[in-house]
Amino acid sequence: MMSSLGQPQSVLLLGGSSEIGLAIVDRYLAAGALRVVLAGRPSDRLTAAAERLATAGATVEVLPFDATELRSHGELVTRAFAGGDIDVAVLAFGVLGDQATAERELALAMEVVQTNYAAAVSVGLLVSQAMRAQGHGALVVLSSVAGERPRRSNFLYGSTKAGLDAFATGLGDSLLGSGVHVLVVRPGFVRGRMTEHLEPAPLSTTPEAVAVAVLAALRSQKQTVWVPGSLRFVMSALRHLPRPLFRRLPL
């Protein structure tokens, strides 16, 4: 159960090796005892994350999970909730996908769509049903500012995040009064593994900063959070910029 001060007893991380997701887990673990379920594709990184959390005192369970295998989601979510209530679930899996390649190779484009959107809808619905049944819980969905206005340089990724964002926002509204809280997170450029090959964009941030913002937003029952917070205003200005102008911005 979530404590009155917003400390959960259990966290499910979907995308068990995600840097942002693990930063959220770390912050909760620093504040108290925690049961962690890491769902992810088996890899050294996933194993290392599990070992590190266990050493830090968490009770860790690892479940193999490939987001693109939609038919496995039902069983995965059942297993994730079998060990007891899940107080916070973080939907953190996602791929950036190289825009230029994806424009040429349909298979890559469809993998990005499948992972970031279709799989997120599938797991999002299943987790929200399980939380509705247990009568409480928080679902954190990692969207992106890239979804707010598509850019030439990565509109494929942007379009999947736009879809995910709309889905998660609507899901949150549908769950009002059910005891289940959905938080949509819109980070800007987060310096980390996913972006290490890119030049940091203005207002770039870190996984730790995203985690801090997520914890605060959950505590105050917010439904949307931008990281850094100033992006909210930047994006609301960019959204209304005429297209020819927006196209010419170095984004």
Partner: peptide, 19 residues
């Protein structure tokens, strides 16, 4: 599930839903 209600204690911090 539709007859569920959010219930909290007097401190109103941790509402959850139940019949």
């Amino acid at each position: 599930m539709s007859d569920r209600r959010l219930l909290a204690g007097w401190g109103r911090t941790s509402p959850t839903s139940a019949r």
